[in-house]
């Protein structure tokens, strides 16, 4: 394995770690808080209903936006750190 290959492999595993982390949050806010864990959040009231309802109708969408911008920012930085960015 050349130096170049090792660098590329490290970049790719950093990307995979970032994706897995982001997708855990993605699943937690929608499938978790918004659907499956809603009964557990029933005690936390938000404007006439509960936190699970808020995540299902607003919270998950806001989190998705945050996740994509975070991912784009981190990856565009990683591109440069590993010298793999476009000219």
């Amino acid at each position: 394995m050349t130096e170049h290959d090792r660098n590329a492999a490290a970049y790719w595993s950093a990307n995979l770690r970032l994706i897995i982390g982001s997708l855990i949050v993605w699943a937690l806010v929608s499938y978790g808080f918004g659907i499956l864990l809603r009964p557990m959040l029933a005690g936390i009231s938000v404007g006439g209903t509960d936190l699970g309802f808020w995540f299902a109708q607003q919270g998950s969408i806001l989190t998705f936006i945050g996740l994509i911008f975070f991912y784009a920012w981190r990856m565009n930085k990683l591109d440069k750190e590993f010298g793999l960015h476009e000219e």
Partner: peptide, 24 residues
Amino acid sequence: GYANSTYLMGWTGGYVLLAMLLAP
């Protein structure tokens, strides 16, 4: 009502997949 929140999450959450798994 709440049961159809599926459309809200489903039609936006796909962009997270698109941004990380396909588009770039």
